[in-house]
Nucleic acid binder design. Structure first.
Lengths: 232, 232
DNA sequence: GGCGGAACTTGTTTTAGCGCAAGCTCCCAG
DNA sequence: CTGGGAGCTTGCGCTAAAACAAGTTCCGCC
């Protein structure tokens, strides 16, 4: 396999504090894999054989109940560490990761985690920070679901998506990957129907612009007011 | 201050893999503090000066929105690591921890975290595992809130409490600390009223036994069925 | 180029559980 | 032992949003 150059991870925060030599050492054990759109990187319940860093693209992480109900846990963007189940002492992945656009990730065998963290303590610290901020996000989501109306939750979700994966376009900010009403519903704990109604209403008012698996925020500030409950 | 003997942390899983000498070294930097019932160990938004291990008692961790809405994030039982905000790169505590019964905790200055983890890698690994399992729990909670009815969520919450802090009593399992209907409501994203109604109904059927800030599960198996949706 | 189906919209009906309101009970303080 | 208040129960109406039910549109594929 062609050796991996350290320039490809120039924008990965978790590697920022490693020296050039250390980086090269880590990359020695890495494999680079391409995941076509709609393919899965790993599956809920599957053995946690690897952990990853996303180099390019976007992933949707989803979780399904035994009864078949599904939620979107989060979206992963380029530069993020993910699939660290093994580091959390899990034998299996607790969710499924699907590429929503053609994507590329580096992967390492989970078995190397102990040695790698021993050699590069910054890796352990970085992982702790990553997992910590996910915990924060997830707790905020519980708080939102407990205290906010559906409309506010959808507004929050769109703003978060725009922040994480927004692309400036002519009339506002577009979410930079295909996302359906169903996906938004699964992020906010509601139904496809309700999301569709809300987006339709907002489109009337010129707050957003829709389309098949496409969402453009035309008035983020107003959306923010709605999210905070000032709206209406 | 009287030196701390390592026997006091015999039942703390996170320290299990440290040698006796390492343990003594860690305990050198620790302070033992008593928190009377209803006092706070740390406050949401406050500077994250310390991290802790609970030796005895129970804490309720709660989080409040700017608008005053509150949720119970979790309960902490003896032996658990908590308040590790600083390790997650947060300057301030993201929630408030209140002693629900008289409690005792060891505390270390957050500033020592980097040195301690450098010296004892098992500490970093343990923290990662702790935070990981909290993330799991919180994600499960989101899934529950998205897909389950209030009755199921309350059943799940009670079962989880019983597992974490249940005490066998004559007619079943009692939650081992004072807990109000309001608290259960804040754990499940519902209202005091609805919880009260549900518990009253269950009490009629002999599934639980109530009282002021007291809950006894008399038929955990039946509750489990309700939680899984088989019930009704 | 037209067929089929996924993604989306929109109307109507139904209901879980929230908000409000009133009253009870038991514990603790004075 | 007697208020007073925190914690709890219960009834009632209402509403947000889910469920149910048709459509419509648009995209990719044969």
């Amino acid at each position: 396999m062609a050796p991996l150059d350290r320039s490809i991870v120039a924008n990965v925060p978790i590697f920022a504090s490693l020296s050039a030599d250390d980086l090269d050492a880590m990359l020695c054990d890495a494999r680079s894999v391409r995941y076509p759109k709609d393919s899965s990187v790993f599956d809920q319940g599957g053995e946690a054989h690897s952990f990853f860093v996303l180099l390019h693209g976007h992933l949707r992480v989803e979780k399904t109940t035994p009864q078949g109900q599904q939620i979107v846990v989060r979206y992963v963007s380029a530069g993020e560490l993910f699939g660290v189940a093994r580091a959390l002492a899990l034998k299996n992945y607790p969710a499924t990761a699907i590429a929503v656009v053609d994507s590329v990730a580096l992967s390492w065998p989970s078995a190397l985690w102990p040695q790698l963290t021993a050699k590069f303590p910054a890796l352990a610290a970085g992982a702790l920070q990553t997992v910590g901020s996910r915990l924060q996000d997830t707790q905020d989501r519980v708080l939102e679901m407990s205290s906010e109306q559906v409309e506010q939750r959808v507004a929050h979700a769109l703003l978060r998506l725009a922040k994480q994966a927004g692309r400036k376009v002519e009339h506002g900010v577009e979410i930079d990957f295909p996302i359906s009403r169903q996906d938004v519903a699964e992020m906010t704990g509601t139904t496809l129907h309700t999301v569709s109604r809300i987006l339709s209403a907002w489109e009337q008012q010129g707050l957003v612009e829709g389309g098949r698996q496409r969402i453009v925020l035309r008035d983020p500030h107003r959306l923010f007011e709605i999210a905070e409950g000032q709206g209406k």
